[in-house]
Design a protein around this nucleic acid. Structure first.
Length: 571
RNA sequence: GCACCAGUAGCUUAGCUGGAUAGAGCACUCGGCUACGAACCGAGAGGUCGGGGAUUCGAAUUCCUCCUGGUGCACCA
C-alpha cells in the first residue's frame, strides 16, 4: 500500500529534516499485528541527532500527531525506538479493494513494456529420456516466462534442444553396431537410451571406440549424409515424445531451434576471436585465457580436431539472439553444474564486439540438483525417474483421492490431471532455486499442507461460495466496516501485495516467492472462511464477504496460472 | 589443491537491501463437520539459526576463520 506509506512518509518529513525518499526506505512493515501496520525505526537517526532512539520516536510521534488531519491513521504508538502507525481499517479495505480491478488482469503491469527477455529453458537432449532432473528447468523457466509476460515484457521462450555434440557421435556409433538389435520404432527413446548406455560402457573400455564416436560427430558436422539422416531420425522421434510431456505440463515455446542450427555460426565466433587476438593455441585446440577475469580455467572455443565446442556454440547463440531478438535480458535456466561454463561464456562474450547492453543482459538462472535417495541420477547408468511416470503416478493419486472424497464429481479424469500435475509443478517451485531436492515419492504425492492441491482446494471453495451466493456484488455494494476484523484484514493485505510479489520474482528470478505467497493467501482465506459466516448474514455483510471471496479467488487463480498450474472449478 | 553454493525444529523449509518474541508445512498429541467443501481450521509440543571470532545500539542476515555436505575445474553438453 504505497498510498499509506506515502502519507506516513510525508508526515514524518514534515516533522523532521529527513527527505521523503530516505524515510520511505526506512519504513517497514512490523511483524506482529500489535505493532501496527507500518513502523518507522529511529535507531539510525540516533547518532546524528545525538539522542536515544525512544526519545526521537516520541518526538516524531508527537509532531506527527499535531499535524494529523488525515483520517487514514487511527493511532500512533511509540514502542522502544519505533514509531508504529495504525491505519484505519476501513480505509485500508477501501483503498485495497478500490485498487482491485474486475478485469481478470489484477497485478499485471506495463513495467516491462518495450523490453525483450529471452528465456532459455527446458532444452532436453535429443534421444535421451525426459527425467525429473529436467522438470526443474522446464517448470522454472515456464513460470518466469509467464510472469515476465504478465508484467508487460516481451518474453521469448527458447527450447534450445540438445541436438548436437559428441553424444550423437556415440549414438550413431552404437546404432551402426547394434541398431538392428533394438526396436527403435516402437519405443524410440528408451531403446536409444539402451544403445547410449551400451556405447558409453564400450567407450570406457576402449579408447578407439571413443575416437570413432568423435569422428562421427565431426562427420555429422561436416554434413555426412548417413550421419545426418540418422540424426534427423533421432530428433524427430524425440520431439514427438517431449511434446507429450509439454502438453501435460502446459509448456510453451516460441522457438525450438537447437544447437545444431546455431553450430554453423560458431565458425564466425572463432573468426572474430581469432582476429581480435583473444584466441590462443593450446595443445592443438583454441582457447581463451580468462586468468585476468579471475577464472582459472580457460574457455575452449575449438577442439583439436577442428570441431566446435559447447562454449563456442553458446557464444554463437548469444550473437544470434542479440540480432534476432534484441534482448534486454537473456536468461539461461540450467542446473548449477553449469555455473563455470556460463561464467566463461559471459566473459568471452565481451570480446565478440556486440553492444554492451547484450553482455550486461546475460544471466544464468541456476538451480539445485534433483537427487534420488540413492544418489545422483545418471542416464548412462539408467537410474532415473522419468517425468512421464511421475506425472502419471501423481494423476493416479489424485484419481484415488477423488474417488474417495468426491465420487460424484463430473469430469474426474480432467480434474485429476489438473490436480496431479499441479501438485508436481508446485512442489518443484516451492523451494528456492539454490536448494538441492532429494526426490521422495511420499513427499511429492502428498496433497496436504503447503502443496499445489491445497491452493486449488482453497480456490474451489471460493468458487463454491460464489456459486452458492448466487450474486456477485459491485464494489459500491461493499460495506468496508465489515472488513475490519483481523482475518479479513490479513487477506486484504495479501491481495494488496500481489503486484509487488510478481516484481520480486523477476528481480530475483525466483518463482518460489510467488509459490509461498499463494500459500499465505490460501491460508489467510481459509482462516477467514472458518471464522466468518459468508452467506446468510444480512445482505450488506454477505455482499462484502462475497466480494472479498471473489477477489481472493481471482488472485489465487491468476497466481497459480502464472506458475503453470491449472485451477479446477471443482475437485 | 583451487573456485562456487548450501548448512535454520525429527523431516521439508520461510525469513526483503541488518531491526521488535526466528514464521510455516509434514510427522506427533489434543479439539472442531445440523454455517457456505474437513484435500480444511484451531491448540500443544518441538530451535545453542553448523562451531568460533569480528563489526554494530542491534546479526539467522555483513566480514573473517574452521567444520560438514554438494557442485565445478579444456577436447561431455
Amino acid at each position: 500500500m504505497d498510498v499509506f506509506k506515502n502519507i506516513i512518509a510525508t508526515k514524518i518529513a514534515q516533522a523532521t529534516d529527513l527527505k521523503i525518499e530516505q524515510i520511505k526506505s526506512y519504513i517497514e512493515i512490523p511483524k506482529g499485528n500489535e505493532n501496527g501496520d507500518y513502523a518507522f525505526p529511529c535507531f539510525r537517526l540516533a547518532k546524528e541527532l545525538r539522542k536515544a532512539p525512544p526519545v526521537i520516536a516520541q518526538e516524531i510521534a508527537e509532531k506527527v500527531l499535531v499535524n494529523n488531519i488525515n483520517n487514514a491513521i487511527d493511532k500512533i504508538e511509540v514502542t522502544g525506538g519505533y514509531v508504529n502507525f495504525f491505519i484505519n481499517k476501513e480505509e485500508m479495505a477501501k483503498q485495497i479493494l478500490a485498487n482491485f480491478s474486475n478485469q481478470g488482469q489484477y497485478g499485471s503491469s506495463k513495467i516491462g513494456q518495450g523490453k525483450n527477455v529471452v528465456i532459455d529453458y527446458s532444452a532436453p537432449n535429443i534421444a535421451k529420456p525426459f527425467h525429473i532432473g529436467h522438470l526443474r528447468t522446464t517448470v522454472l523457466g515456464g513460470a518466469l516466462y509467464n510472469i515476465y509476460k504478465y508484467l508487460g515484457y516481451n518474453a521469448i521462450g527458447l527450447n534450445y534442444l540438445g541436438d548436437y555434440g559428441t553424444q550423437f557421435g556415440k549414438l550413431i556409433e552404437g546404432y551402426k553396431r547394434w541398431g538392428n538389435e533394438y526396436k527403435i520404432d516402437e519405443d524410440p527413446i528408451n531403446e536409444l537410451m539402451k544403445i547410449y548406455i551400451r556405447i558409453n560402457a564400450l567407450c570406457k573400455e576402449d579408447e578407439k571406440v571413443l575416437e570413432a564416436c568423435r569422428g562421427n560427430f565431426k562427420k555429422l558436422e561436416d554434413g555426412d549424409p548417413y550421419c545426418v539422416e540418422l540424426w534427423e531420425k533421432f530428433k524427430k522421434v524425440s520431439i514427438k515424445e517431449f511434446q507429450k510431456i509439454y502438453d501435460l505440463l502446459g509448456s510453451k515455446f516460441d522457438s525450438w531451434d537447437g544447437e545444431a542450427k546455431i553450430a554453423p555460426k560458431a565458425k564466425e565466433v572463432i573468426k572474430i576471436l581469432e582476429e581480435n587476438g583473444t584466441l590462443i593455441q593450446s595443445q592443438g585446440a583454441k582457447i581463451v585465457d580468462l586468468e585476468n577475469e579471475g577464472i582459472s580455467t580457460p574457455c575452449m572455443i575449438q577442439k583439436s580436431d577442428g570441431s566446435t565446442t559447447y562454449a563456442s556454440r553458446d557464444l554463437a547463440a548469444i550473437m544470434y539472439r542479440a540480432k534476432t531478438y534484441d534482448f534486454d535480458k537473456a536468461l539461461y535456466v540450467t542446473s548449477y553444474e553449469q555455473i563455470l561454463h556460463f561464467k566463461q561464456v559471459f566473459s568471452v562474450a565481451k570480446h565478440l564486439g556486440i553492444d554492451d547492453k547484450y553482455v550486461k543482459g546475460l544471466e544464468h538462472v541456476s538451480y539445485g540438483m534433483v537427487m534420488l535417495p540413492t544418489g545422483k541420477m545418471s542416464t548412462r547408468e539408467g537410474n532415473i525417474v522419468k517425468i512421464e511416470d511421475l506425472l502419471n503416478e501423481s494423476i493416479k493419486r489424485a484419481e484415488e483421492i477423488i474417488a474417495h472424497k468426491n465420487p460424484e464429481l463430473e469430469n474426474k479424469e480432467e480434474i485429476a490431471k489438473k490436480v496431479g500435475v499441479g501438485a508436481i509443478i508446485f512442489s518443484n517451485l516451492s523451494t528456492s532455486r539454490v536448494k538441492d531436492i532429494t526426490f521422495d515419492w511420499n513427499a511429492i504425492l502428498n496433497f496436504q499442507g503447503e502443496t499445489g492441491p491445497y491452493i486449488q482446494y482453497t480456490y474451489v471453495r471460493t468458487q463454491s461460495v460464489l456459486k452458492k451466493s448466487g450474486y456477485i456484488p459491485e464494489i459500491a455494494e461493499v460495506s468496508f466496516e465489515w472488513l475490519t476484523d483481523n482475518y479479513s484484514q490479513e487477506v486484504l493485505k495479501l491481495i494488496c501485495k500481489f503486484e509487488e510479489i510478481l516484481e520480486q520474482v523477476t528481480q530475483k528470478e525466483e518463482p518460489a516467492i510467488l509459490a509461498h505467497y499463494l500459500i499465505d493467501l490460501a491460508k489467510a482465506y481459509s482462516s477467514f472462511y472458518n471464522e466468518n459466516k459468508i452467506i446468510g448474514e444480512n445482505e450488506e455483510i454477505q455482499n462484502t464477504r462475497v466480494y472479498l471471496t471473489r477477489a481472493t479467488g481471482e488472485v489465487l487463480k491468476i497466481g497459480a496460472k502464472l506458475l503453470g498450474m491449472e485451477m479446477p472449478e471443482k475437485m
